[in-house]
């Protein structure tokens, strides 16, 4: 059978492989090389070694966006996961209307980042003007919390679904045993449910982590980095380095930042894989 399939490999593999080469392999390798070059287009690249990477660390906007992204990721991970888990607990109690609630909470997940950004910009600016604070364009604190509110609205429902699936897998016997042993609801939660849904928690924490690090559309639409690059995420900072500054020195710097960013995301993903795997063994 293998041999027969192999003879058909051009039909089965080639279309995807060709598109993959155009859409990923070539751009990736070229991007890797260009990080060590000075260029304005792919053709006029001149190799300059690690100079671009050295310049990253003297670029204050990059360091600022790194700090912003880390702080943003920390807060949004905690907020999203705590609320999503709480909702999942409530929605596994056989309350009336559980399905409607589930539908409503999941819905924002389907709306695109740009649209979400503008919806929340209008909403937050209205709140700010009603309480007499400066608007988003001048208010980095509001930009920070606004972005957290936005991604919470978007992602809580998604994580909630994963937690619900996890909670439904906790065996009835175990819960019954805890009840017979006289465990309070609180104790059952901490000692039985929480340890049993550990795999879901790992998945959700890392999903929110990678989502926060890669965040682009929402940040672009909500604040665009205003005021003064203070609310720029890493992805947005790279974009601006490429496209809102003219001159050969910036493209190389942008590509070097992109490589560094890529390494960062890969490291996070590897950690995620390791954590998920080790949790699976215990199960």
């Amino acid at each position: 059978m293998e041999k027969a399939i192999k003879r058909y490999s051009p039909i089965f593999v080639l279309p995807t492989l060709l598109a993959f080469t155009i859409g990923f392999i070539i751009p990736f390798l070229e991007g890797l090389y260009l990080a060590f070059c000075q260029f304005t287009t792919v053709r006029d690249a001149a190799f300059i070694g690690v100079g671009n990477f050295k310049r990253i660390f003297s670029d204050t906007t990059f360091l600022q966006s790194f700090k912003f992204t880390v702080l943003f990721a920390l807060a949004s991970i905690i907020i999203i996961n705590v609320i999503a888990f709480g909702l999942a607990l409530l929605l596994t109690r056989n309350l009336k209307g559980t399905n409607i609630f589930r539908t409503v909470f999941f819905m924002p997940n389907l709306i695109g980042g740009i649209v979400l950004g503008y919806i929340w910009q209008i909403l937050i600016n209205c709140v700010l003007s009603l309480v007499g604070e400066p608007l988003l364009a001048l208010n980095s604190t509001a930009g920070y919390w606004g972005l957290i509110a936005l991604v919470s609205w978007q992602q809580i429902g998604y994580m909630m679904i994963i937690y619900i699936a996890g909670l439904q897998n906790v065996s009835e016997d175990l819960l019954e045993a805890a009840q017979i042993d006289g465990a309070s609801a609180w104790k059952t939660l901490w000692r039985v449910k929480l340890p049993m849904v550990m795999p879901s928690i790992t998945i959700c924490v890392f999903l929110t982590l990678t989502n926060s690090f890669k965040l682009f559309d929402q940040s672009l639409a909500l604040t665009g980095g205003d005021p003064n690059h203070l609310t720029e995420t890493l992805a947005l900072n790279i974009y601006y380095t490429f496209y809102s500054r003219a001159g050969a020195q910036w493209k190389g710097l942008g590509q070097a930042k992109a490589v560094l960013f890529c390494v960062l995301v890969i490291v996070i993903s590897l950690l995620q894989l390791k954590a998920t795997r080790s949790k699976e063994v215990q199960q």
């Binding site: 859409g23 751009p27 990736f28 991007g31 260009l34 682009f216 974009y239 493209k251 960013f261 890969i266």
Partner: peptide, 14 residues
């Protein structure tokens, strides 16, 4: 795993 920013410039040129 690779974020889009890594390839965005070269991809658009390709």
């Amino acid at each position: 795993v690779v974020p889009f920013q890594m390839v965005m410039f070269t991809l658009s040129q390709t």
